[in-house]
Simulated assay, not measured.
Amino acid sequence: MKLIGIEEHFLTSAVANAWNAIGLEMSDPSVGYHQGVVGRRLADLAGERLALMDESGLDIQVLSLTTPALHDLGRESVELAQRTNDAVAEAVARHPTRFQAMATLPVSIPDEAALELDRCISTLGFKGTMLCGRVGARHLDDLAFAPILDCAAMLGVPVLLHPRTPPMAVRDAYYSGFSPLVDAGFATVGLGWHYDAGIQFLRLVLAGTFDRLPGLQVILGHWGELVLFYAERLAVMDRVSGLSHPIAHYLRHNLYVTASGMFLPHYLKRAVAIVGTDRLLFSTDYPYQYRPGEDARRFLSECGLDDSGKAAFAHGNWLRLTASCLQ
């Protein structure tokens, strides 16, 4: 059974240098995670990556630039996004049966970002884009970013909404008071990342984004970035939201969720209960969650879904979601 991982990351030296040039590691501790073995694996788009895909049982990786992508860069991100996408397109061309790609966008320049998304889908054959939530103090529901979301909806491609580090004021208020390492972990991979991504999605819902763009499809990793586990409480806001539908509608019609290497059958069961088997996507969150021993394929075989559900989870839902991409 073909196994497609749709949240598999890379990092180029040019992007890393751009982060270093603005001292991003001083404000975003996640930049420090991209070093050592993880850094080497992020940079590699050939030998070791393919070997570890084989070892874990993954047939295809859908490549996306790791967090925080280009969200903290300004005008220089336009040309950097183009170079990044061209480099990934070359990797896909070298290994067309093993790689697909998500567009990297100059998100702080929304009109240019929409143009680059169109180029990536229509010319380079990419499958969607990955965004990392906030840009400065602005959330993705800010009307300034409408050109990007409008373009994704028009092209019929999904937006993978990836976690990023909460702003400093939030970290100081809620994720501090321990050692620097504990503070950083608490604010990022431990919890803060996932609240931040889930809130970005809910802001899109509450802002009426999906009423305006009913065909727009968003992907949340890590089994829905906590959103699915509070679906019952979120429904309380139906009384005051003024939306065209209950919040449960948007979870069923505008959201896909993926595993991000959290291979936990009880999380999968919860996702099925909220979004259904036709909105499950597979991913390993390479290289962060890489584990040896055909871990990915073993989880698929033991996840508890029937054969048709396993096929949908493994590849069928992704192929259907991206079948309408303009090529």
Rank of each mutant, 00 (worst) to 15 (best):
A18F: 09
V88K: 11
V38M: 01
Y33F: 06
L45P: 12
A16H: 08
P106I: 07
Y33S: 11
A103W: 04
L52H: 07
T97N: 10
R75W: 02
V15D: 08
L115M: 06
G125Y: 02
T66R: 03
L11Q: 04
I22E: 05
A16T: 14
L80C: 13
L80Y: 01
V31Y: 00
Q35P: 06
A101N: 07
A16P: 12
P110L: 03
S122L: 03
T97C: 10
D118Y: 04
E25K: 07
A87I: 11
V78L: 04
S27E: 13
G74L: 01
S56K: 02
R40D: 15
A91F: 04
I22Y: 06
M26R: 15
E112N: 01
E76A: 06
L65K: 05
L58V: 15
V37Y: 00
V31D: 13
R94C: 08
V88L: 13
M102Q: 13
L80N: 03
N20D: 15
V107K: 01
S122I: 03
F10G: 06
R40G: 15
L52S: 09
V92T: 14
C120M: 10
R75A: 13
N17A: 15
S77P: 06
L11M: 12
D118M: 06
T67R: 05
D118A: 12
P29N: 07
A18R: 08
